[in-house]
Design a protein around this nucleic acid. Structure first.
Lengths: 107, 107
DNA sequence: ACCAACTATTGACAAATTGCAGTTAGATTG
DNA sequence: CAATCTAACTGCAATTTGTCAATAGTTGGT
């Protein structure tokens, strides 16, 4: 469900800067289970959003353990997040129409 | 949005048997615009669902114009439609959580 | 000291999906 | 008789996704 993944990541980054591994963990809040979502997908999407100029990153060498690439949201990312929310709204409308019509038929 | 396309087609076929071209027309009820959805995608998906045993088809030679392949939903298709509705329900739940959290942040 | 488990990121490749354009062909309308 | 509409299908390139493996630092246990 990449449709939800990118906005989820952007939302988390809007709340606070973070690195891939931590974001991957926090995605469970949006119903992403580690069994169904490989972490590489998250890293890839972060990289892509960085190329698009929605977020940027730098290495954090102060933390213990392997070094982390810490991401921050940019203004373009905030704008894009708003747009995505609108898209999600309209998709919800479409799904509602579908589900309602299904239920009507079942009566 | 293939996530919505297949259940939409199955739902329409649950209501009444139909052929690809007509189904393509009726998809506007679920927010599919001809500008964004090529008809070949619909034909392809119908064929795939037929191979999966969700629907079956036969040629209608009585109608005027080019011959139509008329699809009917099968029991497996009805079962699958129910399952898809459950999936859509859960995705809606996830999108709700996302949208709500976004709105909370904007306050 | 050593090994397993956990943290953290990346790369590569196969498989699936998508978009787009084109082909065939009957019927209708001006 | 040419254009338009109906109807279905095919092929291919481009993109997206899924899966798996590689690398590497850190921590905890024996």
């Amino acid at each position: 469900m990449r449709l939800i993944l990118r906005p989820s990541l952007l939302l988390l980054l809007e709340e606070k800067e973070s690195h891939g591994y931590e974001l991957y963990d926090q995605l469970s809040a949006f119903g992403f289970e580690p069994q169904r979502l490989d972490s590489s997908v998250v890293y890839r999407d972060l990289r892509e959003m960085e190329e698009l100029g929605l977020i940027d990153s730098s290495w954090d060498d102060d933390s213990k353990g392997p070094r982390r690439r810490v991401y921050r949201i940019l203004d373009d990312g905030r704008t894009r997040l708003t747009e995505w929310m609108d898209v999600l709204d309209s998709i919800q409308g479409r799904m509602n129409r579908l589900i309602d019509r299904y239920k009507t038929n079942q009566v």
